[in-house]
C-alpha cells in the first residue's frame, strides 16, 4: 500500500471546509473575532492563516508569549507570520508569571516546567479572549492529539480545533498551499519548552513515519499485527499504540460518577451548537 499517497490532501478543498468551519463556529456563538497563540511553528501559523481568511485579519489577534529560554527564532518566525497575514498582534512575556512558581519548586523537571509554561499561555489566551472579544482557536494537529503530545489544559485548551483532523504531514501540505513563510514550514517542529527540544527527537520517530502508522491504525483500522505486516517495526507499533491509548484522557472530558437518572457526560447529550 502506498500510504504516503493516501495522506495527500486536496488543499483547496481542505481550506474551503476549514475556513467555513471557523467562520461558522465563531459567528454562531455571537463572536466575530478570534485569539490564537502564535509560537512561530507551523501549526499555529496555519491555524492563524485559516482564521484570517475566515474572519478577516483585523479580527484575529495573534499572541506571542515568550519565556526567558524561548528561542529568539520562535519570536521572529511568529513575527514573520504576523506580517504575512496582516493580523493584529500582542506580545506577552510569561517569564515574570512563571518565576515565582519555579522559585518555589527548584526541583522542577524540564517536563514540569514545560507544562507550567503551556498552561500559563492558556491563561493569557483566555484572558485575551475576554479582553479582545474573540474565541480561542486551537492549534493541535491529529498526530499530536493521537499521541497525546500536548499539555492537558495547556496548549490543547481551545474553543475549536480547525486542524485537529489533519496529520502533521497534511498540515505541511496545507501550509505550503497557503504560502506561509518557508522557514516556518521547513524548520524542525518544536514545542520550544526547553532549549534544543524537537518533537521528533523527543518522540523518537519522524512525523512521516508516525503519520503513516497512525493512518493505518486509526483511519484504516489496522490491528497492530497488520501494521507490522506493512513493514513498521514491532517496537514502534507497540510504542505508538501504547501512547495513543495511555493519553486518551487528554482527548475526553473527565468521567462524571453517575448517580442520578440523567447525568452530564452520560445521557445529557447536546452539541456545543446548542448554545448558539
Amino acid at each position: 500500500m502506498d500510504i504516503a499517497a493516501r495522506l495527500v490532501i486536496h488543499t483547496p478543498l481542505a481550506e474551503k471546509i476549514l475556513v467555513g468551519f471557523i467562520r461558522d463556529g465563531v459567528r454562531k456563538v455571537g463572536f466575530q473575532r478570534a485569539v490564537i497563540g502564535l509560537s512561530g511553528g507551523i501549526d499555529s501559523a496555519l491555524s492563524a492563516a485559516l482564521a484570517a481568511r475566515a474572519l478577516g485579519p483585523e479580527n484575529v489577534l495573534a499572541v506571542r508569549m515568550p519565556y526567558a529560554t524561548s528561542s529568539p527564532d520562535s519570536l521572529s518566525d511568529a513575527q514573520a507570520v504576523i506580517d504575512a497575514l496582516g493580523v493584529r498582534s500582542l506580545t506577552v512575556e510569561i517569564t515574570p508569571c512563571a518565576r515565582p512558581l519555579f522559585a518555589a519548586f527548584p526541583e522542577m523537571t524540564p517536563l514540569r516546567r514545560g507544562n507550567v509554561l503551556a498552561r500559563l499561555r492558556m491563561v493569557v489566551l483566555y484572558d485575551q479572549s475576554a479582553a479582545f472579544g474573540g474565541l480561542v482557536i486551537g492549534t493541535s494537529n491529529k498526530t499530536e492529539t493521537l499521541l497525546g503530545y500536548s499539555t492537558i489544559y495547556g496548549d490543547n485548551a481551545a474553543a475549536m480545533q480547525p486542524i485537529g483532523d489533519l496529520y502533521k504531514t497534511q498540515v505541511r501540505q496545507l501550509a505550503r498551499a497557503l504560502e506561509l513563510p518557508a522557514r516556518v514550514i521547513e524548520k524542525p517542529p518544536s514545542a520550544d519548552l526547553w532549549a534544543g527540544q524537537t518533537d521528533e527527537g523527543e518522540i523518537g520517530y519522524t512525523y512521516e513515519a508516525l503519520d503513516k502508522l497512525l493512518y493505518l491504525l486509526v483511519d484504516e483500522r489496522f490491528t497492530p499485527a497488520e501494521a507490522e505486516a506493512e513493514g513498521f517495526p514491532a517496537a514502534m507499533v507497540a510504542d505508538v499504540w501504547r501512547r495513543v491509548r495511555a493519553n486518551h484522557y487528554k482527548r475526553t472530558m473527565p468521567a462524571v460518577a453517575k448517580l442520578s437518572q440523567r447525568t452530564v457526560g452520560h445521557d445529557f447529550l447536546y452539541l456545543r451548537d446548542w448554545a448558539g
Partner: peptide, 8 residues
Amino acid sequence: GLDASDRL
C-alpha cells in the same frame, strides 16, 4: 473522506 480528490 478528504484525500487527493477535489471532492470528499
